[in-house]
Every structure is written in structure tokens, then in C-alpha cells.
Write a protein that binds this DNA or RNA. Sequence first.
DNA 1: CGGGTATTTGACGACTGTCAACGCCAGTGG
DNA 2: CCACTGGCGTTGACAGTCGTCAAATACCCG
Lengths: 246, 246
Amino acid sequence: MSKFLKPRAQPTQCAVCPIRQNALFQVVPVSYINDAQSRRTDQYHLPARRLLYEEGAPATMAYTLYEGWLMLYRSDSEGRRQGLRVALPGDFLGYMPPGEGYIHHSALAITNAVVCGFRQEGLHEMMGKHPDLAAHITRIQAHYMASYQSAMLGLGRKTAEQRIAFLIAELFHRLRKRRLLAEDATIMPFPLTQEMIGDMTGLTPVHTNRVMRRLRLDGILRVERQRLEILDLDALVRLGEFVETE
Amino acid sequence: MSKFLKPRAQPTQCAVCPIRQNALFQVVPVSYINDAQSRRTDQYHLPARRLLYEEGAPATMAYTLYEGWLMLYRSDSEGRRQGLRVALPGDFLGYMPPGEGYIHHSALAITNAVVCGFRQEGLHEMMGKHPDLAAHITRIQAHYMASYQSAMLGLGRKTAEQRIAFLIAELFHRLRKRRLLAEDATIMPFPLTQEMIGDMTGLTPVHTNRVMRRLRLDGILRVERQRLEILDLDALVRLGEFVETE
DNA sequence: CGGGTATTTGACGACTGTCAACGCCAGTGG
DNA sequence: CCACTGGCGTTGACAGTCGTCAAATACCCG
């Protein structure tokens, strides 16, 4: 029942029903693969700018992101929005443990995206039958928590320049780690608007713009529509105090 | 280092080996209780100001906090410290999933504390045998994540006054929820120094002090050594935009 | 009583937010 | 083909929150 497959170049696997391994979840247990495949929905296309799910909605489904970028965020009563995480292909979203009724954040498509869904109860049943799936999910949650912790350190203690540098360095690193960029690539896709960068870093769009200009003038970045070139990765990583945790 | 103590007739149960239920983990599965009790260490005492574990250390143990308060935090290369969570009795700390080597944050005793420990491998084995323990751990992780998300919203988007109000409202709520305060209590134990409040809210000690003064002058709080009286809970909750998520 | 720690206050400056306006570009429809 | 429109990026002027530096006071514990 349990099969272990070779690592592959194809990175955008479903985290829950991984036919192949991806870079993020290297030690992928697959004893539950048949079960998982029978329970997932078909892939589903989500156009840019649309919500996959919204804060406060009943937590009925969880998703694997196959293609595209999403932004997970939380907003307060006055509509101020705080970004929590940029979801990249391979990320697993929206999982809630048994007994939890409502989701605490929203997921917005930054680009067109492709996801596949699982009913929460299906996941809970599977976790009961397949301990390695349960362990896998605690591992995913631990990754998210570590990344939240880094973000909190940034929001609480770093300057605007450092936060933006960290965000870009982290995205670059995650894309590379998942083989969504070549080893030696310096140009990455970058579909975030400056407003979204501000959402992620706790800054206003105006200030985000000024900081981006400074990073360009300092010779660290170059931005052209939807793409971003990293001219000085060393400086970027040092400035943002980025350390890889994965 | 580790001393024997009598079990106490208190609501502060071990989240993993719950003899009685506590308020936070109401739906406590107990199929694994015998297994858990045979695996946990004895309770042991941790003096105030001491670290239970430190960022970067190998993740060998997880803990349940029985008595006392801890502060979980993360610090950067220059020693700036960002608080992540105040751990209260009943909290489960330091868990890492199988295959994760190092812990990403530190845990500092705010007061004298009593904990009991579990070896991570022991937990992983138990999770394999008892699916309800695995589900329970994903539930704890989800609680932590939701609380991190609230904190991120505060750090990124709220004013100093709002962050501090939120912190206090949240602690008050958590203490009440766990029956560590009477239903009608308005005075709570408050062992945090102003520096620690600043650590939690991303502020400097000096600014924290000024904000605390304002909250006192506005008739919202009263502080006396190690205790805090909430004079206007409504105002506190409204100011901090606190909404209970548990 | 003494020494270290925590709190408090003042003065000053920097980082970041707010308000407002303008330019650029892509898509749309005439 | 071109004017129009809306979203996004850019820039300036100004204000305010919050950090920094420094020092005085209050508090706790031996």
C-alpha cells in the first residue's frame, strides 16, 4: 500500500495526495495516496482577484494550490488588512482541525490559480486511518507557524526596508526550493502589487513605494511589470536578515 | 533538577495527559491517557527568569505548563526580541513534528513555573497509535496559529494603545476561560514587566510606559505590583478590537 | 540599609502615515 | 484609430506616532 517515489523535477504537487514529492515536503508519506485521490475534488480554476475563501466562513474545505499565487490575509473591523502569507504552488491551505467551525483568514488569488479541494471531514477521517497523514499535517502547520513567527519578528522589530527585503528574499528562496526557479535564476515572477507588498509588511502603499524606490536606487532590485530581478542577493538577504528555516 | 510533586486539584491539566478537562481543551480525547502518563516526565520546577528552552536548540522535549506564566519569543541577530505568546497554565509548548530538528523560539519563565515534559519521539509514537491525540495536537497548533494571526494584525496595523489593550484583554479572557479567574473577577495577576509588554507588542519599554500611563489616566486600568485591575472592560475590548476566537 | 532592577519623565529626532495630485498603462468601446 | 476609464505607481508636503538618549525616581530583596 505504501509507495515511495523518487524526487522529481515537477514541483507543484498536491501536499495531501502527492504522486510525486516536491521540495517543500521532502519526506512525503504516501500510504494514504489511494484514499486521498478518491476523496479530492477535481482541479478547479480560480481567476485572479477572486477570493478562494473568506474569514468567518464555515471551514468546510481545505485546498492544495497547484498553480498561481494566493495571498492569505486577515482584516479588522475598519478594513485594515494584514497579509499573513503568500501561498505558492504546493502550499496546503484552509485546513482546520475537527471541531473548529470557522476559518480565521481570507485567501485571495493574486494570479489566476488552480487548486484542488478536500472536505475537512474527509481529511479528518483519513487522518484517523493514516497516522502518517496526521504527522504530515502537523508538519505543515509547524512550517506555517515558523513562518508566522519570522513575520512577527519583522512586523514588531524591523524597519520598512528590512521587511520588504525579507519578503522578497523569502519568496525567492521558496520558489527556488520548490524548483519553480532555476538554480542560477536571478529573475523571478512577481505578481504582487505594491499595495499587496504593503499588506504583507504592515506598511501603507505610499511608503512601500518609497522603499521600493530606495531598493532600486541602491542597486539591489530591478522591477519590470510582473517580474523582479535581484541584482544583489547578498545585500537583500543581509538587509532583511533572512535565514532559511525550512 | 526534577522533583516529585503531588498532583494538584487545579484546572491546569496537562494537555496531553488530561486527567480532568480544562477550559481550553474541552473536548479532550483520553484514549491515550495511560500511554501518556507512562511517558511523561515528573513535574519539575522552573524558576522565574530562566529559559525552559532556547531558539536553535535541538527539539527533544515538549512540555505542558502546569503552573506559572512563560513568554515565548524570537530574537534576531541584534538581540531585538519579539514576543510570540504568553503561555498560561494548560498550554502545550515546544512540540515539533517528526523530522524537524530545531526549535524556532525561546521560552522564558516569567514567574516560577511547573511543567512536565515529553520526549518528542514518545509523542510521535503515541500519535501513531492514537489518532485522537494527533487530532488534538493539530487542534492546539491551529489555536496557536489563530493567535499568531491576531498578533500579526496588531503588529502590522494597530496603534500602540490598541496592541496593549488587546494583549491585556486577551490574557484576561484566557485566564477566565480556563477558570483561573472567577467569573466576576476584575483583578488579574499580572507578572509581566513593562519591558515584556513591549516585547509582546513590538514597542520599546519607554513607549510602553507612556501608553500604560494613558490607559490608567483614561480610567481603563489600575496597576499595582503584580496585579492589574480592569476598570472598564468594555473600553479595553473595544480599543484593542479584541474578539474571542476560541 | 544598600544595590540592582523596574518605572517614570523630558527632549529630541526619525520613521512612517496621511492627504493630495499627477502620470502611466492596458483594456474598452465608439 | 482614438478618446475614455480605472487601476496602479509615483511624488511632494506635512503631521504624528514612536524610538532614542539620558536621567531621576521608585521598588524589591538580601
